[in-house]
């Protein structure tokens, strides 16, 4: 009797441990599985330079979604974003790829527009700004071209 009680306690402990591990790996791996909430919009960029699936999408520094996938479409980068439900994006919103700090990670910043038309789910953000390539700019304006 005593022994089976210990066994049950150990079993429960292990189960809780496994559940904790699963939770951690889902959170850290930024995997959305089972009932991904929110809605999806896309945006085409000439270059994404360092943006990755899982990067954050922000308005005013507040996370409103994540980059779900990045693929190639007609030699442009097509970024698929999953936006939290309840956050509306106006048709003239601008999506810009920005860097956190000077050399930090890349994220996607959306500056909301003023249009009364909203981007529908599976719609497209048509106003985009590609990341500024500092190295390229530097070499261009310091050294010039041959």
């Amino acid at each position: 009797m005593e022994r089976s009680r210990v066994n049950i306690a150990v079993g429960l402990f292990v189960l809780i441990g496994i559940a904790g591990l699963a939770y951690l790996s889902i959170q850290l791996g930024r995997v959305s599985f089972l009932g991904a909430t929110g809605y999806v919009v896309t945006a085409d960029f000439p270059s994404v330079g360092g943006l990755k699936a899982g990067s954050t999408v922000e308005i005013a520094g507040v996370e409103i979604g994540r980059v779900e996938a990045i693929g190639l479409a007609d030699y442009q980068a097509r970024v698929t974003l999953r936006i939290h439900a309840g956050v509306n994006l106006q048709e003239d919103s601008i999506a810009s790829i920005k860097t956190k700090g000077l050399i930090g990670e890349k994220y996607l910043r959306i500056s909301p527009g003023g249009s009364d038309r909203l981007i529908p789910p599976r719609g497209k953000i048509r106003e985009v700004e590609a990341p500024v390539d500092f190295e390229e700019l530097l070499s261009k304006y310091i050294f010039g071209k041959i």
Partner: peptide
């Protein structure tokens, strides 16, 4: 309606400042 010089949009620039 917008001019993008070296990847920087005129509207995005003013939108941030005005806001």
């Amino acid at each position: 309606y917008d001019v993008i010089i070296e990847g920087v949009s005129l509207i995005a620039n003013y939108r941030t400042q005005f806001n």
